[in-house]
Simulated assay, not measured.
Amino acid sequence: MLEKEEKTKVSLKKEDKKQRLLDAAYHLFVEKGFRDTTIQNIVDYAGVAKGTFYLYFKDRYDIQEHVIAAQAYQLFQHAIEAIAIQCPDRFEDRVIMAVDHIIDELMENRDLLHLIRKNLSAGLFEPKLVRLLETQNSEFIKVFEQDCKASNIPISNPQLMLFMIIELAGSSCYNCILHGQPMDIMEYKPYLYKAIKAILHMEEL
């Protein structure tokens, strides 16, 4: 019993160090930028030895991928929670609500948008990043697939359709939010949502 408790404590301590490194990396990537952040900066901020870093990550690029995956997961998870609270009747309205919620979070946190850049879909579909999250992001995909089946909209490949929607929203909103190109994000939203509806119904044509 005592041996099991000790193993649990060690495991929790390891997870705590890993999380501190992830939190430190996110803070520094946002504050200094990835290029100007060193591994030494990260371990100093996290308060761990440099050797500890290499127990969990290969290099800066590896921890950057972990950070992006974790932050993307939070965005998609918050979108699921928002849908569960308001629960619009129509499938297409639920999809647009999810996208709208993600865009609003990125508008409020432009530093996060700078970090993720145009790679929003990577947290859902990039195999390496999904493995880093131990497939947590698959929950968002499952919700989408279940909604597809429950709707009367003919969709032969739900994951491909979701990928198209997330790619469209992520890449175009990056430019609208950060650079106002080709227009302000609030002006752009109606065009984006019209395009998403067209994607959802494209197999009806």
Rank of each mutant, 00 (worst) to 15 (best):
I177V: 01
F34G: 01
S172K: 06
D100Q: 09
L129G: 04
I116K: 01
L192D: 00
I103A: 01
Y61D: 10
Y61E: 11
L200Q: 03
L178S: 02
N119W: 15
Q77P: 04
T8K: 10
D23H: 07
R110H: 10
L75D: 11
D111E: 09
Q159R: 14
F29H: 04
S138Q: 15
E5V: 11
K149Y: 05
I166T: 01
I199C: 02
L113S: 08
Q181K: 14
P182G: 13
A82S: 14
T38Y: 03
L55G: 08
P88G: 09
Q136N: 12
F34Y: 02
D89C: 07
E134S: 15
P127E: 11
C173W: 07
T52P: 14
L2D: 10
V48M: 12
K17Y: 06
S172T: 08
Y56R: 09
Y45D: 13
K118W: 14
A69C: 08
K128E: 03
C148F: 01
M202G: 00
A49P: 08
S11M: 12
C148K: 01
L21G: 01
A69M: 01
K4Q: 05
Y61N: 03
H66Q: 08
F57H: 10
E145M: 07
D111T: 13
E6K: 06
R90K: 08
C148H: 00
L160S: 10
F144H: 05
P154A: 09
L21E: 02
E105A: 13
